[in-house]
Amino acid sequence: MSSAAKFRRSHWQIMCDVIFALIIRELKTRFGANRLGYFWALAEPMAQAGILVLMFSLIGRSSLAGVPVAMFMLVAILPFKLFSKILPQLSAAIEANKGLLGYRQVTAADPIISRLIIEVITFFIVYVLLMGIMAWIGFSVLPDDLLQLLAVSGLTLVMATGMGLMLCAATTWWKDTGKIVSMIMQPMFIVSGIMFSATMIPQQYWFLFVWNPLFHVTELSRDAYFSAYQTPVGSFEYLGLWAIASFTLGLMAFQVNRQRFITS
């Protein structure tokens, strides 16, 4: 009786084992290199919000659209971070694990799924921790409509995954794809309504922003979080369309190019 027979696993079990192994390997290289690794995941959005809050307090604003500045910023920064971190993580997922795709158990989808799991869990922990800190300082942090908040975050995740998959496929054709993405994400931070909301812009200029699905993410997130804020433009239909379209195209691009991931 060979010991191999003991280890006959179902496809599902094999996939779980592989994803577990990949997650541990990712956590080790990402956060293990310096012990403060996970601290930075937390400190970055906090510092960003802190600086923006400071800027706005210096101009003499303590609340925006009826919401305390710090909360106003945080609720927008966090989903934006989720999006802007998933893109580069997914686009480099295959390249960073190439050596491990040599094992038949590891398929191209596994590093993608592992990285998504890590990003979502990190997002969740950062969100809860930051809001905990805000509550401790004395802000009221309970979201007005938790279900809507989860829906917006979910759609953001689906959209980011789709675009990440497309970028991952694009990277096999052109190595510098990632650089372009990080170049685009910088101005996106400004036009995605993190430092302002639709109610603060004159209506005739809304057209400058409403094409941007991330603007809808910020608008809908604030609408969900604060009872005092009602978005005049944020649309679930528009964001949902983006999410479904990019997810579909992403899966297609990934499937069409899957041969390229394995053959180096």
Binding site: F7, Q13, I14, D17, I24, T29, L100, Q105
Partner: peptide
Amino acid sequence: SMTARENVRFVARIHG
């Protein structure tokens, strides 16, 4: 980017 030990662990894990 991984050490030999980490590689070995990885291979052991994916084999269950």
